[in-house]
């Protein structure tokens, strides 16, 4: 199965990168754009199928390595291969 993890800065946390990108969008004339946040996606393959065990394994991977719970949120999508 294919896993895609989306990591984004917590809404309560300042995102300087997002602010800079928003500024650039506005300077290109897209002045109505608001709330830009920059995160990252991590994709990988792993054996098995979508199950509570798989999801708890993925939580373990996401919570600490792929994201830092102090500053980031994550969610993942599972695509059966």
């Amino acid at each position: 199965m294919k896993v895609t993890v989306f990591v984004s800065p917590k809404t309560t946390v300042l995102d300087p990168q997002g602010a800079a990108v928003e500024q650039a969008m506005k300077s290109l004339g897209h002045e109505s754009v608001e709330g830009v946040r920059v995160g990252k996606t991590v994709t990988f393959e792993m054996p098995g199928e979508d199950s509570p065990e798989t999801r708890s394994k993925l939580d373990e991977l996401c919570d600490g390595l792929l994201s830092n719970p102090v500053i980031e949120d994550y969610r993942f999508e599972i695509e059966q291969g």
Binding site: V13, L14, D15, P16, Q17, A20, N68, V70, I71
Partner: peptide, 16 residues
């Protein structure tokens, strides 16, 4: 901080 030996986290400088 990442290891949890100290609290908090260090983010990108606000000035980029």
């Amino acid at each position: 901080c990442e290891a949890g030996l100290l609290p908090g986290a260090l983010l990108r400088n606000d000035c980029i």
